[in-house]
Amino acid sequence: MKTRSLLLSALTLSALATLAYAQTPALKKGLKITLLPKNINNPYNVIETSGGLEAGKEIGALVKVVGPSDAGASSQVSYINTAIAQKQDALVLAANDANALLPYLARAKASGMKIVTMDSDTAVSGRTLFINQANSEGIGRAQVQLVGKLIGYKGEIAVLSATPNATNQNTWIKWMQEELKLPRYKDMKLVKIAYGNDDDQKSFTEMQGLIQAYPNLKGVISPTTVGISAGARYLSTSPSKGKVALTGLGTPNQMRAFVKDGTVTAFQLWNPADVGYLATYAAAALVSGQITGKPGEKFKAGRLGEYTIGKDGEIIVGPPYTFDKANIDKFDF
């Protein structure tokens, strides 16, 4: 009897598991998904959207990449309106401004489109999910921890950011400033936050200006792939090479030469392709009814595995990674 009871229990559990699985709808085929990065000529955004295209192929979705050539606050509006007119199932957006796009995103949502932000968020009301590269606090604090280590926790530092309105940049900078309040940084001082507007030449000029304006500068954090590579290009032929520590967020392929020639000792990032990949799977899961966006809901994202939706619809890809001369050749992106 005991054996029979155990067998019945096992069968019941198996049946319940099968029922639960059957109740999870499959991803719909042929979904129309628009990827809208900050700007299309930014190397980081190219890699990011490549992940979305990869995911689209895996799930049989019609994924396209559109976007402006500049990262202005209003530059993405026409592309949102076009997505509405084309009756796209989902929009995956890296927002240039947290609030400027809200009226247009409201129209998109009213049309039935699912909105997922990646990399740079809107206000919570503008979307259902936000795919964050890593915890914003962790990124900001890690940048200060790294530059502190590079300059021996002593001296003046500056930040070379993207645009003044970039949501992700401003959040990271806020946490950098919080980290700098800790006792270990008592001999370090943030003297300037400069903005290169995610433009290569502007960032190059701003880096030059920082070094000329602050002769005692010991370190620069540039938490933007455009900024750090442009800053490194200036620094590589400057008398300040080896004297000013430049770090931030960049891709290995951008930064490899600067690491190998000693311009940059170490920098950080995640794999941006994973951000676009996860965002596209999340959008497809929303449209297919696998998830609604509530905290605690889980879904599967191909090769990245299972993810859980957090507070305010945030989903974190993973922690930032530090690249240096010892490991940079292991990566190709």
Results as ranks from 00 to 15, higher is better:
A285E: 00
T225G: 09
E137V: 06
L102C: 12
G219H: 09
E137S: 12
A73L: 11
K294R: 15
D198G: 02
T292I: 01
A213K: 03
F258V: 03
K38Q: 09
P239M: 07
G248Y: 03
G242R: 01
K38A: 06
P43E: 09
A20K: 15
D274Q: 15
A282E: 10
L16E: 05
I80L: 03
I316T: 14
G293H: 07
A85K: 13
F331P: 05
K87Q: 14
L269W: 15
G310S: 07
L217K: 02
I139D: 12
A301P: 07
D312Q: 06
R303K: 12
V287Q: 00
Q201V: 10
V191M: 04
Y104N: 05
N96V: 13
P272V: 03
S161F: 11
Y321T: 14
Y44M: 04
L36Y: 06
A123N: 13
E314D: 13
Y195V: 06
I139Y: 09
K243L: 07
T117Q: 00
N271V: 13
Q201A: 07
M176R: 01
K2W: 05
I151V: 14
A230F: 01
Y277D: 06
K202V: 15
P183D: 06
L6C: 04
V264N: 00
I40G: 02
G67P: 05
A158Q: 05
E137L: 08
T308H: 08
I221E: 02
K38T: 09
P319N: 04
K243P: 03
K174F: 13
Q254E: 05
D187A: 14
T224F: 13
R141K: 15
I33K: 13
T322G: 09
A98K: 10
A108C: 08
A17H: 12
K181D: 03
G302P: 00
P103Y: 03
D119I: 01
Y195W: 09
P252A: 01
N253R: 11
P68F: 07
Q133S: 11
T265D: 14
V63T: 09
L53G: 10
A10V: 12
G293D: 05
P43D: 08
A230P: 00
L13G: 07
A232G: 10
G293M: 07
Q290Y: 05
N253G: 00
A85T: 14
A17C: 14
Q143H: 11
D324L: 06
G112M: 01
N327E: 04
E297A: 11
V65E: 10
A123Y: 11
L190Q: 01
G227Q: 03
G219N: 08
K154I: 06
S5F: 14
Q76K: 10
F331W: 07
T117F: 01
V220W: 01
V144M: 08
L6T: 13
P68V: 11
I221L: 01
V124K: 12
S5Q: 15
G155H: 11
I59H: 03
S136G: 06
D121Q: 07
D187S: 12
S120M: 08
F333R: 11
